[in-house]
């Protein structure tokens, strides 16, 4: 008797309504957390909502934001890319040193290509040799960092005359009031959102992360898609490295140390599942901004740097906890 009753309940109306609620929570909890944070920030510090401060938050989030879109693709397939910070450093150094001998229009594409090549290296071992992405990208991380240090001999490199536009035109410039680095980030975000929502490639990336075997048994080649997300992640990391170089005016081999963790945190705050198959570009962007705002408030409140790290960690835990408690438990 008891058994039949509970079954009827399970398949009946209440079950599906609960499902909708869960979906709702999953879709909106990231945004809700962000909105609460922004309101809290504006109450705590009157400076927060100032145009200049907002602009700063956005500019500082540009690098993380660009890399986060590549990371999202990798995480959607069920992988992880630990090499992003180091590849950004290599992109930064490569671009700065190439600028001494060639124009911007050549140095930037070459740097992006180098990032893509490192991504291809990781992609090859993950997709073709089927090694765990964690280990592979850990190796690529040290390879990239080492290469950046070799190329730069451990010293920062000024971007020089060929790269003057990076520092002035790009970094200080704006379109319709939006700083160009921020605009670039939004462009990368829009492209990612478009690919994930509307293209066959995006749908298959999500499907592979959700159940790769079912995709393979549908006659779809899984390997090239997994390979490609690492290439994209590598290129976007190099791009972020160049954006950071534009902001500081120097290419530096120590750019992006620990950045991979910030990016992963942003993607996870955005509600993506590290198991793959779940996550959206919009929520990832909000995750990036959430991290940016947290850092900003603490700066405004003059919280010392060491304390900031602790607070950030706690807030990441709370944000992810809020999301996961809404999710249905798998039997």
């Amino acid at each position: 008797m008891a058994v039949t009753q509970s079954i009827e309940q399970g398949s009946g109306g209440s079950g599906s309504r609960r499902l909708d609620l869960r979906n709702l929570a999953a879709t909106w909890s990231t945004s809700a957390i962000f909105v609460v944070l922004v309101i809290a920030a504006s109450l705590i510090s009157p400076d927060f909502l100032g145009i200049r401060n907002i602009g700063n938050v956005l500019r500082q989030s540009a690098g993380t934001g660009i890399i986060a879109m590549g990371m999202l693709l990798v995480i959607l397939t069920g992988g992880i890319d630990l090499s992003v910070g180091s590849v950004a450093a290599l992109g930064s150094i490569l671009c700065a040193s190439l600028l001494s001998s060639m124009p911007l229009a050549a140095a930037v594409p070459l740097s992006l290509l180098a990032g893509g090549a490192l991504g291809a290296l990781a992609g090859y071992f993950v997709a073709v040799r089927r090694m765990p992405s964690f280990v592979v990208t850990l190796a690529v991380m040290t390879i990239a960092r080492g290469s950046a240090l070799i190329v730069s001999k451990g010293h920062p490199i000024f971007i020089g005359d060929n790269g003057a536009w990076l520092g002035d035109g790009f970094n200080r410039g704006s379109l319709l009031g939006i700083p160009l680095p921020v605009l670039l980030t939004l462009l990368v975000f829009a492209a990612t959102a478009f690919v994930l929502r509307l293209t066959a490639y995006g749908r298959l990336v999500v499907a592979i992360g959700s159940n790769g075997e079912a995709v393979r048994l549908s006659g779809v080649r899984v390997m090239p898609r997994i390979f490609s997300v690492y290439v994209v992640s590598g290129m976007l990391s190099a791009l972020a490295g160049i954006v950071i170089t534009a902001r500081t005016g120097v290419g530096s081999p120590v750019v992006g140390i620990g950045m991979e963790l910030d990016v992963i945190a942003a993607v996870v705050i955005g509600g993506a599942s590290l198991m793959g198959g779940r996550g959206t570009a919009l929520n990832t962007l909000i995750g990036v901004l959430t991290l940016g705002v947290i850092g900003n408030i603490m700066n405004l409140l003059n919280v010392p740097g060491y304390h900031q790290e602790v607070v950030k960690g706690v807030i990441i835990l709370v944000a992810v906890l809020l999301q996961s408690s809404f999710w249905p438990r798998r039997a």
Binding site: T199, A200, L204, V206, N211, A214, L217, S218, G277
Partner: peptide, 27 residues
């Protein structure tokens, strides 16, 4: 485990084998 991507919509599961037919040249 092998036939379906459970979390994806019914519609997207049904076209997993024929997706190419429903894309324009830009994918």
């Amino acid at each position: 485990g092998q036939g379906l991507v459970l979390a994806m919509p019914i519609r997207q599961n049904a076209t997993l084998t024929t997706l190419k037919r429903f894309t324009n040249p830009f994918g």
